[in-house]
Design a protein around this nucleic acid. Structure first.
Lengths: 209, 209
DNA sequence: GCAAAATTTTACCATTTGGTAAAGGCACGA
DNA sequence: TCGTGCCTTTACCAAATGGTAAAATTTTGC
């Protein structure tokens, strides 16, 4: 049993665990935890259900593994926000990185959105222990930049919310955007231009009215 | 059977259908269609499951009824965007109305988010037939305002996306925001100030750089 | 006050779902 | 090449779930 043990995983084990997690990401991100079934995940992974449960103790475990993996990736762009960089360029880079993540990891974005929508029943500790301190730290950083006159006065917390909302929107509401722009359109090119322009306008400190 | 008939609904019928829809809104908005159960909805409504199914043919029907009711409410703020008003004030009012809706109807917002996240399996026709034409119309209106020099050049479609994303974020990601701002904080006061200021900065046509 | 209609409850049912037991197959080092 | 341990399948199971039939109860119009 490959679960609780701490031995090195075999090649088969690595391949199958990876396949299961990929399949689970697909299914959980579309239906949420309760809406997803092990049969669906097993089918998507090309395994039988008991075989699936040979690699993961239970459904919750699969979901938790995905969520934990996600947290790192998800916070990384914010982690690298550099106190020593130029404030406007740092934040604009952050926006772009978040948008890139929405484009490249839409399933992860939707998995996260689903979990939060449902009240974060399995993720609240992570939010409190990992996200909250980082959030506070980066808000303080932005507040500092403002105090130094290197950014216009703006609510740092809501600025971050707006960045998250506008970037993740392209992954989470992909379906709606597809209907409105036409499914052939690549929304991300124009989205990038729009968001860069929008947040630059917002943050340009040398603005004269 | 009160379903297919077109008689006037009795008082009991009105009360119970209302209770069911309210309970269903609560449950569907938290768990999505597949994750919600009739037992949960029945319990929440204070009815037995068979009694529930006396009022609605099946699970899908309840969900569909909610979705249809929602569509009107949801589009209304955009409908009233007035071609004869002042462009900046019209859009800022729209932002405020959307934020007010997020605050007052968070469950509806999450129901919608859930449906879109899952690929809009039950709502795509509505999106194409109701939202799309309205979206195109209002984009044309904004483009017109820009052409008249009454708004700075901006991508109307992505502007609307940004408005939707930033306002609905406060309902859909309420849990996360609660963790980050502290659950006692009323996010909507500062959110309103932030969004109004943000979009005003963005849209102020008499801007000099 | 009473019959008819509307509503609610009780007792089910078939299917799906998360999960288990145990036998069978397979791979790989001795 | 053989047996030991890893992997997979087959055959299940109990609980949950969407839904139904029909009896029992309540409400309503007269």
């Amino acid at each position: 049993m490959p679960d609780g043990t701490n031995k090195k995983p075999s090649r088969i084990q690595q391949r199958n665990r990876r396949a299961i997690l990929d399949a689970a990401l697909e299914v959980f991100s579309q239906h949420g935890f309760r809406g997803a079934t092990l049969d669906q995940i097993a089918a998507e992974a090309g395994l039988s259900k008991p075989n699936l449960l040979y690699y993961f103790e239970n459904k919750e475990n699969i979901h938790l593994t995905l969520l934990n993996q996600l947290m790192e990736t998800w916070l990384d762009p914010l982690v690298v926000l550099d106190p020593d960089g130029d404030p406007v360029e740092e934040i604009l880079s952050y926006v772009q990185r978040k948008l890139d993540m929405a484009q490249e990891l839409p399933r992860e974005s939707r998995l996260f959105a689903n979990e939060i929508l449902q009240g974060a029943p399995r993720m609240r500790p992570e939010l409190e222990n990992n996200l909250k301190p980082l959030f506070d730290e980066k808000c303080a950083l932005i507040d500092n930049w403002i105090a130094q006159g290197r950014l216009p006065a703006i609510d740092a917390r809501h600025l971050l919310f707006s960045i998250w909302a506008t970037t993740q929107h392209y992954a989470d509401f992909q379906t709606q955007i597809g209907v409105l722009l036409g499914p052939k359109t690549d929304a991300y090119v124009s989205a990038s231009a729009h968001l860069q322009s929008m947040f630059r306008t917002l943050l340009q400190p040398n603005i004269r009215r």
